Simulated scan of single mutants.
Amino acid sequence: MASVVIYTREFCSYCTRAKSLLDSKGVEYVEHNATYSPELRQEMISKAKGRSTFPQIFINGEHVGGCDDIHALDQAGKLDLLLAA
Rank of each mutant, 00 (worst) to 15 (best):
G26R: 11
C67Y: 00
S52P: 09
I45Q: 09
A76L: 13
G65M: 03
L81C: 10
G77F: 00
L81Y: 09
F11V: 09
H32E: 07
G61N: 13
F54M: 15
G26L: 03
F58R: 04
H63M: 09
S13E: 08
E43M: 03
A72E: 15
P55Q: 06
L82K: 15
S13D: 10
D80N: 13
L83G: 04
Y36K: 09
D23I: 02
E28W: 05
S46E: 14
Y29E: 01
T35A: 00
T16A: 08
D69A: 15
S37N: 12
Y29M: 03
E31S: 05
N33T: 02
S13P: 06
Y7V: 00
G65H: 11
R51L: 13
H32T: 09
D69K: 04
S46T: 09
L83V: 08
R41N: 14
H32R: 11
I57E: 14
K49T: 15
F11C: 12
R41S: 11
M44W: 10
E28P: 04
G50A: 02
T53H: 10
T16N: 10
K19T: 01
V4N: 04
Q42F: 12
A72C: 07
A34C: 10
C15G: 00
R17A: 11
D69Y: 11
S46F: 13
D68M: 10
A85Q: 14
R9N: 15
M1H: 09
L83W: 03
Q42H: 10
K19Q: 08
S24M: 04
V30C: 06
A85P: 06
K19H: 06
F58M: 03
D80F: 00
S13A: 13
G66W: 08
G26Y: 07
L22W: 14
L22E: 06
D74C: 05
K47H: 11
E43W: 09
C12M: 07
Y36P: 00
S46N: 14
C67N: 13
I57R: 03
V4Q: 05
S3C: 12
T16F: 03
V64I: 13
C15M: 07
F54V: 08
I59K: 06
